[in-house]
Design a protein around this nucleic acid. Structure first.
Lengths: 218, 218
DNA sequence: GACTGTGAAGCCATTCACAGCT
DNA sequence: AGCTGTGAATGGCTTCACAGTC
């Protein structure tokens, strides 16, 4: 049996393809070629075909892919054919922005709890969820069968909250705090770092085209 | 003259190293080895040395790096030795979260304007900035010497606002909307996509360890 | 002895180019 | 003729391993 190692880049693109296909579905298109997908999302057509080929043969030679079928396959590959329960820790501006983010709901991510330590936030409502205290964390995770924790706490609280999530049996964490976190091997961790993204822009604005023609000290 | 192509991964790590070094500075540490940096941020020590070696010889064999010096070099490499003026388009929850984000201010990113189309938001204040209408965009960009646009508008408005930013002479865009944007070659574009990040977690939770042992249709 | 800087090797992802199917 | 699926080639990033320096 052939075993493929799928790169993160491939998964990222699959997610983008699926969003593009959804748009085509809304426009009632029946079939689409790898070249059209490529053009729509800004990659090469060979890349599109390679990405899909890891998972099966979804296309028809000479024709392309059936939009609805391909969309269904990718949703299944991404594991989005069922809902995921999530918990948000940190009910500040960012936490509430994420709680209200329509994109999550559209893709089957359900926010089952929002926690904070700030007394004046606790008890307020976001969507139809009441913000609760951090010490209910383990209870919430277990009671609601939560797989994914979304971290929007300040950097200095991030590792402690992470440890609590891990102890509560969380399976994956999406970290928005500007802090490198340590988790055990069996917990999946991703980091969305706003400052890093701006700093990459800063680097590119400063140096143009990623080329560094001489050493900084020369 | 040797010309290096610097990878985005290297730049990302430099940004992370600099944050770690700042922490060491606060702790009054004088020197640090590549191994200690590596441990602190979760990469290999060879990786740390390679990343730094693209830009110069900053270390002392047998000793390590002087923390304050190295921090200064990286800040300069990243182009953070001066301030960057930015504009936020979209004053919803996410836009205001970013406007108030301390991490941006700490690293020298100044928000000079916040725009929206919603009548009831326009005129309100965030930090000490008054939210203004979208049609002041070109004027704001030019008047305030703005290099970076931060996009937090809904997907269906994103390309139109992008075109306006480009026309106004923006140099770089950080896009938070779930939309693939087209910009000319001379404009730098980055995409922070919340849904994609959650969907990568979903994929990993579903398939474990990135291995795909059989085709989806087998 | 400790740690940097770096060429070489190894590994992984993307692109090429074409055989094969409709 | 058009488009997929894929082995081979290419290009790029990371790790290895060690000479060089303090």
């Amino acid at each position: 049996m052939k075993v493929y190692k799928i790169s993160e880049a491939t998964i990222t693109r699959l997610s983008i393809y699926s969003r593009f296909l959804k748009q085509l579905l809304n426009e009632q298109l029946k079939t689409v070629s790898s070249g059209e997908i490529a053009k729509g999302v800004g990659v090469s057509s060979a890349q599109v075909r390679k990405d899909l080929a890891y998972f099966g043969e979804f296309g028809m030679r000479g024709v392309g892919y059936k939009v609805d079928e391909l969309y269904g396959y990718i949703i299944k590959i991404l594991g989005l054919n069922h809902a995921w329960n999530t918990i948000i820790i940190g009910a500040g501006k960012l936490g509430s922005a994420l709680a209200l983010y329509q994109g999550f709901i559209d893709r089957g991510f359900r926010i089952k709890a929002i926690l904070d330590i700030e007394k004046k936030i606790i008890g307020t409502h976001m969507m139809n969820i009441q913000v609760d205290t951090i010490d209910t964390l383990a209870h919430k995770v277990q009671e609601n069968d939560i797989s994914i924790g979304i971290l929007t706490v300040p950097a200095d609280a991030a590792q402690e909250v992470t440890d609590q999530l891990v102890a509560a049996g969380i399976k994956a964490i999406l970290n928005f705090s500007p802090k490198v976190l340590k988790v055990p091997d069996n917990v999946i961790l991703r980091h969305v770092d706003f400052s890093v993204n701006l700093e990459i822009l800063s680097f590119n604005l400063t140096h143009d085209k990623y080329m560094f023609p001489f050493r900084i000290d020369s």
